[in-house]
Measured scan of single mutants.
Amino acid sequence: QSYDVTDELPLPPGWEMTFTATGQRYFLNHIEKITTWQDPRKAMNQP
């Protein structure tokens, strides 16, 4: 797995990073009650 500086940034409020039983990373948004494979920190860093 390649290193990404985004991995060091804190998640936005309400978000949690977790893993499936097979080790795949995904993200939970407790405020909007959604899950996604997309890292919400990457969207924050788009110009």
Rank of each mutant, 00 (worst) to 15 (best):
Q1E: 08
Q1G: 09
Q1V: 04
Q1L: 09
S2N: 15
S2C: 08
S2G: 13
S2T: 11
Y3C: 15
D4T: 09
D4P: 12
D4E: 11
V5Y: 06
V5W: 03
V5K: 13
T6Y: 08
T6Q: 09
T6R: 11
T6G: 09
D7K: 13
D7Y: 07
E8Q: 14
E8Y: 07
E8G: 12
E8M: 15
E8F: 06
L9T: 15
L9W: 11
P10I: 08
P10F: 06
P10E: 12
P10C: 05
P10T: 13
P10K: 10
L11Y: 04
L11P: 03
L11H: 03
L11D: 02
P12R: 02
P12G: 04
P12A: 04
P12L: 02
P13N: 13
P13G: 09
P13A: 13
P13M: 08
P13I: 08
G14Y: 05
G14L: 01
G14T: 03
G14F: 04
G14E: 08
W15N: 03
E16C: 07
E16D: 13
E16W: 05
E16K: 06
E16N: 03
T18G: 14
F19R: 11
F19Y: 11
F19G: 05
F19E: 14
F19D: 06
F19I: 14
F19S: 10
F19H: 05
T20K: 01
T20N: 11
T20L: 04
T20S: 10
T20C: 06
A21I: 10
A21Y: 06
A21N: 14
A21W: 04
A21S: 14
T22H: 08
T22P: 03
T22A: 11
G23W: 00
G23L: 00
G23M: 01
G23I: 00
Q24D: 14
Q24T: 08
Q24M: 04
Q24G: 07
Q24W: 01
R25P: 06
R25E: 07
R25H: 05
R25V: 11
R25Y: 07
Y26A: 05
Y26I: 05
Y26F: 07
F27K: 01
F27G: 03
F27Y: 13
F27L: 01
F27M: 01
F27Q: 00
F27A: 01
F27P: 00
L28K: 15
L28Q: 07
L28S: 08
H30V: 07
I31G: 07
I31A: 08
I31V: 10
I31N: 09
E32S: 13
E32Q: 15
E32P: 01
K33L: 03
K33E: 05
K33W: 01
I34M: 09
I34W: 12
I34L: 11
I34T: 12
T35M: 04
T35G: 04
T35E: 05
T35H: 03
T35A: 06
T36E: 02
T36Y: 00
T36R: 01
T36K: 00
T36Q: 05
T36H: 00
T36S: 07
T36C: 06
W37A: 05
W37M: 07
W37S: 06
W37R: 05
W37E: 07
W37L: 06
Q38F: 11
Q38W: 10
Q38R: 14
D39R: 04
D39M: 01
P40V: 02
P40A: 02
P40Y: 00
R41A: 04
R41E: 02
R41N: 04
K42A: 10
K42S: 08
K42M: 08
A43R: 13
A43I: 11
A43Y: 09
A43S: 14
M44C: 13
M44I: 07
M44N: 08
M44A: 14
N45Y: 15
N45C: 11
N45I: 11
Q46H: 05
Q46D: 15
Q46L: 13
Q46T: 12
Q46N: 12
P47L: 15
